[in-house]
Design a protein around this nucleic acid. Structure first.
Lengths: 342, 342
DNA sequence: CGGGGTGATGGGAGCGCTCACGCATGTAGG
DNA sequence: CCTACATGCGTGAGCGCTCCCATCACCCCG
């Protein structure tokens, strides 16, 4: 219906308030160094005209965008089967909006998308990036580093052993895995198996490491490779039962996998936890609570991780380069949540 | 390490190529009306300098942003339990990137967020908006209409009866429901129940309507209210079995609900589909395939819906106001996918 | 062989904002 | 009472780009 009436400018507000552009600008940006009566007049003019600053014009001179890119490389359909990313997104979104930053979402699939993303980031459209790098051999993190954009990673990047400069937020995968396995040991279990995630992801590799830490040199048949999915968990559990019929506990690399394992155990007539105890990882609620029996698992606060990623990035952005010690990576603790399955 | 070297400007490229700013601009924006040799020289200069246009400067004059907001009102945690949004986001993302548009994600929760979003949209940061309005009484769509931003809705907004101007993309909830129920009738079932979704969402209401269309005046005890969740499906199924032990078919408003129903049926010793046939709605794969028995359901192409939403919006944006007939809403067909449960 | 196209290029203005100044005030100190 | 400095406010420039228009070259035709 109505033509998009051209929005009022600073100039218009200034005219209405009977002051200069600069004064309006000062008021709009915090009002420092302007006396109260004027501030009031300007505020009112802004209100009456419904003035909203033109972000493009502002960015043009400040070179800031108040926008952050979230890059999610989507190797498979994991995003959609696992509530993980959604929760993390929510945490990120909360933190960003609290600081008036916008969230620009970049979903990628395939190689050509990588260069597109890299170019976009290098193009200086956003002030920083939050990147989920899932795979060890993913070229994306490298490209992004090259783009010279401040970046925080979600999950430890494969090439980072903690010694280099990449900033990331992760949970204590290794420690959490240790806790889980120790709990099983404490339950008196002797044949404790591990169904892994895809080992080109650091989270999966670290969880396997935690398992090994506690188990010492386990029977290699007790470790079955899998892929963080329910179907994968089913296949792995079947295989495991064939190889080691005497298995009395399973530590699955994530909840979805554990769910698959539970299902197969039930089908094969094994009671959980009496015959076989099962522990998962993540504590994504709808999954763990729906399962029968309810799943003992290692909880990580996913939303909080998202929030912290954003906070870390924003801090790095506001802080002028004279860094008060560059912000360093964060590793969040995990907690074992005991339910019925172990 | 390296200072963010100030990026080359159009001017710099022009100098290097020995042409004017205007010419470089023309080349960068498609190269029409510039002769081949010059085009080539400019391209090379762009390449050598690694020139990337400054989007802020460009927007300042064109008043276009090549960015679209995606607003997801998140009443509960549905986003995270249901792959629905994630799939739709992916479709949207694909379409937007194909047309060099950015996706600005706005997640909201609670009333104050609504005004924030409305202000943001009114602020002209984006060219248009894709909005998921879940609830009948949601004030957000109204606020957004008021902001004067071209908008396409995901799912029929509650206040739209098809006669007004809101543009939306939805699937044929009513027709799909009819198909499902007719299939059950064709199977010879007589006591066909319906577990609804939350009826303040049009999708749920429309599916109920489709059920009624086929059933005529069903026994009111055969309709049980629920909420699109697994847990809700369990409760509803339990209730249903208590009320109508002779029920021989269930049409659940979505797959998650159907999953809950399946579980309770199994617990209560009813065979599916022999004793009770079950049909879901959505066909979100990991859910339908994992279930035992696999779930017969009404498929809607969710990713395609996202893609179409984006396409509709982009078309509305490029087309100058002299509309060739305003783009109208789209209702996608559904298909019944027969698996084991009915 | 000259006038009037036609189409390719350059010049200039200006989008809306911030920021460095510069000029007024106001207050205190000599 | 005048200078010295702080503080409040206005002025002007310019961020990097697009777009309008003037310019110029070239070609065709009379």
């Amino acid at each position: 219906m109505s033509e998009a009436v051209s929005r009022p400018t600073l100039e218009a507000v200034a005219a209405r308030a009977g002051v200069s552009r600069a004064t309006v600008s000062r008021v709009v940006n915090g009002g420092d160094g302007v006396r109260e009566p004027l501030v009031e007049r300007v505020r009112q003019a802004v209100e009456e005209l419904g003035y909203v600053p033109n972000q493009a014009a502002r960015s043009l001179v400040t070179k800031r965008h108040d926008a952050v890119a979230v890059v999610i490389a989507e190797p498979e359909t994991r995003i959609f089967t696992d509530p993980f990313f959604a929760l993390q997104l929510r945490g990120i979104s909360k933190e960003l909006t609290a600081h008036d930053n916008q969230l620009v979402l970049l979903l990628t699939e395939g190689r050509d998308d990588h260069t597109r993303v890299a170019r976009y980031l290098a193009g200086g459209h956003v002030d920083g990036a939050l990147v989920f790098s899932l795979h060890l051999d993913d070229p994306l993190p490298g490209l992004i580093e090259g783009a010279g954009v401040p970046t925080v990673f979600g999950g430890r990047p494969g090439w980072s052993d903690g010694s280099n400069s990449a900033v990331y937020v992760d949970c204590d995968n290794r420690g959490g895995a240790q806790d889980a396995v120790r709990h099983l040991v404490g339950l008196g279990r002797r044949r404790i198996a591990h169904i892994t995630g895809p080992l080109d992801q650091t989270s999966a590799a670290d969880r396997l490491q935690g398992y090994r830490d506690v188990m010492g040199e386990p029977d290699p048949r007790l470790v079955v490779l899998s892929d963080f999915t329910v179907g994968g968990g089913e296949r792995a559990m079947g295989e495991l039962l064939d190889r080691c019929p005497d298995v009395d506990a399973v530590f699955a690399a994530n909840d979805l996998t554990a769910l698959g394992a539970l299902r197969v155990l039930r089908e094969r007539g094994r009671r959980v936890p009496e015959d076989v105890a099962v522990i998962g990882f993540d504590d994504v609620l709808p999954v763990t609570e729906q399962s029968a029996p309810s799943l003992t698992t290692v909880r990580q606060d996913i939303e909080e991780m998202g929030r912290l990623m954003a906070r870390l990035l924003l801090r790095a952005l506001t802080r002028g380069k004279p860094a008060t010690g560059a912000p360093s990576s964060l590793i969040l603790p995990t907690t074992l949540v005991r339910r019925a399955s172990a």
